[in-house]
Amino acid sequence: MASINAKAASVSFRNVTKIYGRDVVAVDSINLEVAAGTLVTLLGPSGCGKTTTLRMIAGLEMASRGQILIGDRDVTSLPATDRDVSMVFQSYALFPHMTVLENVSYGLKFSGFGKAETRERAEAGLALVGLSKFGARLPSELSGGQQQRVAVARALVLEPQVLLFDEPLSNLDAKLRRQVREEIREIQQNLGLTVVYVTHDQEEALAVSDEIVVMRNAAIAQKGTPRQLYEEPADAFVADFIGEANLIPCEILTVSGDQAEVGIADYRQRLAARAMAPGPARLAVRPSRVRLDADMAAPGMAARIVKATYVGSRMEYTVEAPFGTLFAVLDDVTQPLRVGSEVRLSFAQNGPVLVPA
């Protein structure tokens, strides 16, 4: 990881609330810390408050209550022009009649730089995003990924304390999304930037983030590193939203120390108790942690394959089990399980997680 940029600043939300009209609560008393030089993603379904939170950092929305700090400076009441942040929008917002270099230079013209320095900074910004040879082109002559990089360069040349991304990859196809997200992450790490990034794409969030903040119903459901959220979800919502999870009703039979014995039909498994007591619970199981065995003498519970789909690198199965249907992913594509066949169903030792019922 590169050292922190000298201009990069932390972002702090202290009991921040945003209310529209009389009673529409878009963000409900959230506390949030973004360390300088890190990339933090706000993740959640539509309407959860993530974009409103981003816009409050930018000064495009004003907090109804609470305090917002950038570095040590209280910016709660400051307009967007006084906050030293830059934002990359979903639509890129490039001027179609301007060349790429003119687009990147645009903000610099209002920052007190002379012509020569403006051009020098703009060219350096294009070099950072790998577009040095594209300065004379119009946006319409670029691919979607190249236009996105121009938007990033335009934001970077202003040397903001905080760089904001609002669903930056949603207009790109899957392959290009993967490429551009890697480029954004590389630029952020190389330059030591503070970045707050909004997306509803779980895979994107896992790939780029130092920390993920999962939002639900205008509040923070859980925050942590990608690995923490994937492997230790706080509840069923986070388990299902970060990646994909089968949420299976189960019974915690006994708890001994930090270990619980869990029962599902006649199947038993020991796993981390996560401070839960005996009684009803749910088991969150990733599709890749499901085990299906054609040997009916194998340990597990009886189940039946009801759907099998070949997707190239793996097989996807829908399975009928004593508790209902379940989705499983297996790497073996050479000997797929047949639809209608009986199997023994079990779960990997590592991966399944208990969450409250």
Rank of each mutant, 00 (worst) to 15 (best):
T53Y: 05
A218L: 05
Q179Y: 08
N5W: 03
T76H: 02
T199S: 12
A272S: 14
R65T: 11
M276H: 09
L39E: 01
R119W: 02
S12Q: 09
A260S: 12
A151K: 02
A357I: 02
D293Y: 04
R83F: 12
V238M: 09
L108A: 06
N31G: 15
G114T: 10
Q228F: 02
R185D: 06
E244T: 15
R177C: 11
F134Q: 10
G44R: 00
P160W: 01
F347R: 01
I264Q: 12
H200I: 07
V198D: 06
C48R: 01
I19A: 10
R73V: 13
A205R: 06
K18R: 12
L101E: 12
K50Q: 09
D235L: 05
V16G: 05
V152R: 01
D201L: 11
F165Y: 15
M56T: 10
A357N: 14
R274D: 13
E141D: 11
A221K: 08
T52K: 07
A265I: 08
F95V: 05
K223N: 14
R83M: 10
G145Y: 04
A328I: 08
D240K: 13
A281I: 08
D266A: 14
E232F: 12
L330H: 12
K223T: 14
R137Y: 11
V343L: 11
S111N: 12
E231Q: 15
I248P: 09
I30S: 07
T334D: 15
S140Y: 00
E203D: 15
M98W: 09
I248G: 07
Q202P: 07
A151Y: 03
A127N: 11
A298T: 10
V104N: 00
E61N: 10
L128C: 15
L131N: 00
G47Q: 06
L54Y: 10
G47E: 09
Q148K: 09
A124F: 02
A8V: 03
V152P: 01
N15Y: 06
V88M: 02
S209Y: 10
A219E: 15
G107P: 03
A260M: 10
D295C: 05
A9H: 00
A6C: 01
S170I: 01
V195L: 02
Y267R: 12
V353E: 12
L94Q: 04
I252D: 02
G224N: 09
V40M: 14
G351S: 05
G49H: 06
A124T: 07
R181D: 02
R154A: 04
V162F: 01
I187T: 07
S86F: 01
H97T: 10
C48M: 07
V152K: 03
Q202F: 04
Y230S: 01
L292D: 03
R73Q: 15
L78Q: 13
I248E: 06
P299W: 04
R185L: 07
V180T: 12
R177L: 11
I212M: 11
Q90F: 01
M301K: 12
K109E: 13
I248M: 10
E316R: 11
A297Q: 15
A80R: 03
Q228W: 02
V311M: 13
N171P: 14
V285P: 00
D240I: 04
T99W: 04
F237I: 04
C250D: 05
A297S: 15
